[in-house]
């Protein structure tokens, strides 16, 4: 257990460094965007005087490093600052939307992960058969289309043609859970189609790779059933790579939903970040980026810990 705790501490420390670098990159990146919030709000016809006055009010007249340090100081106290465009507290602005994004991501994960693993195992079991090829072709085509294209196709099929699901995924904090699931099903299906191929193919490849190992041959010579050989002898040893790809895809579900959220007008973090970039509302963009980066760091850490826990060689040293 000591090794795991040490690993967690080490990874959290490097995670902080990563987050700091991310904040630097985002901050300077946004600096280079033409125009600013004052320009955006007051429009092209604003006089230089009124622009300068508005900038002063927002604190945009100060040099970049001063603003960055001030913002960083705030973050260390848990204060992300206020949105420049509507003066609301960013933490409150983000809170609901983050929960929404997590809800959508979890829903997609609950659908995608079992499907991907099952298909992967079945494809490995019946490899090079018609079933295997069919699964491969289907998942590969779904990953090859851009997400928005899949989203629109699904909307066309399920909302326009048969009117089964709503085309807009509009939820509010008081929408009941079951309705939420119903409303979010279409975006969740889009995300599922995007991530299944990756997870399924790695599961298949990991298991096929293991089927050549001597202990699998041994299991066959023990007269065991095929299902037991795959589930009891192959799968536990394939877990480490599978966990890694699953977690990577979970991170994608949270971070990569931007386009899907925009298509379905879903009130999540992705929608917020797109709006804020358009408005040059930098504190909000900063905060969202940090949350995304932190999600990546934490999920990768989880993957590493799970890999250790599922590997007796690392969990129980000699």
């Amino acid at each position: 257990m000591g090794t795991i705790l040490k690993l967690i501490a080490k990874r959290l420390a490097t995670g902080l460094v990563v987050l700091w670098l991310v904040s630097l990159i985002i901050f300077s990146g946004l600096e280079f965007l033409p125009g600013d919030l004052a320009q955006e709000i007051l429009g092209q016809s604003a006089t230089p005087e009124s622009l300068a006055a508005f900038r002063k009010e927002l604190g945009l007249d100060q040099p970049m490093h001063t603003r960055y340090l001030k913002w960083l100081g705030g973050v260390f106290h848990g204060d992300f600052g206020k949105s420049l465009s509507n003066q609301r507290q960013i933490s409150e602005l983000i809170g609901v939307r983050f929960a929404n994004t997590m809800f959508l991501a979890s829903l997609a994960a609950i659908i995608a992960v079992p499907i991907a693993l099952t298909l992967g195992i079945l494809a490995a079991l019946y490899r090079n058969t018609f079933f295997d090829r069919l699964i491969n072709v289907l998942t590969l085509s779904s990953i090859s289309f851009p997400e928005f294209f899949i989203a629109y196709i699904l909307i066309y099929l399920f909302s326009v043609k048969i009117n089964f699901f709503p085309s807009l995924a509009n939820i509010s904090p008081d929408t009941p859970l079951w309705d939420r699931v119903y409303i979010c099903l279409l975006p969740a299906m889009t995300l599922t189609l995007v991530v299944v191929a990756h997870m399924m193919r790695l599961t298949r490849a990991s298991i096929i790779n293991l089927l050549a190992s001597p202990y699998i041959e041994m299991a066959k010579l023990k007269g065991l059933k095929k299902a037991r050989i795959i589930l009891y002898h192959a799968l536990p040893n394939a877990l480490a790579p599978i966990i890694n790809v699953v977690v990577l895809n979970l991170a994608y579900l949270i971070v990569g939903v931007v386009i899907v959220e925009v298509v379905f007008v879903y009130p999540g973090l992705g929608q917020l970040i797109v709006d804020s970039v358009q408005k040059r509302d930098m504190p909000v963009v900063q905060a969202c980026s940090l949350i995304f980066a932190a999600t990546y760091v934490l999920l990768n850490l989880t993957a590493d810990i799970l890999s250790i826990i599922t590997n007796p060689r690392m969990l129980y040293p000699k």
Binding site: S213, P214, E217, K222, P236, P312
Partner: peptide, 24 residues
């Protein structure tokens, strides 16, 4: 055929280290 294996005819492999499943 499977019902014979392990029960009436058993196999001992060259490398026990590779033929035991590391996960169990």
């Amino acid at each position: 055929r499977r019902s014979f294996r392990g029960v009436r005819i058993a196999y001992v492999a060259q490398s026990a280290a590779a033929s035991f499943n590391p996960a169990h």
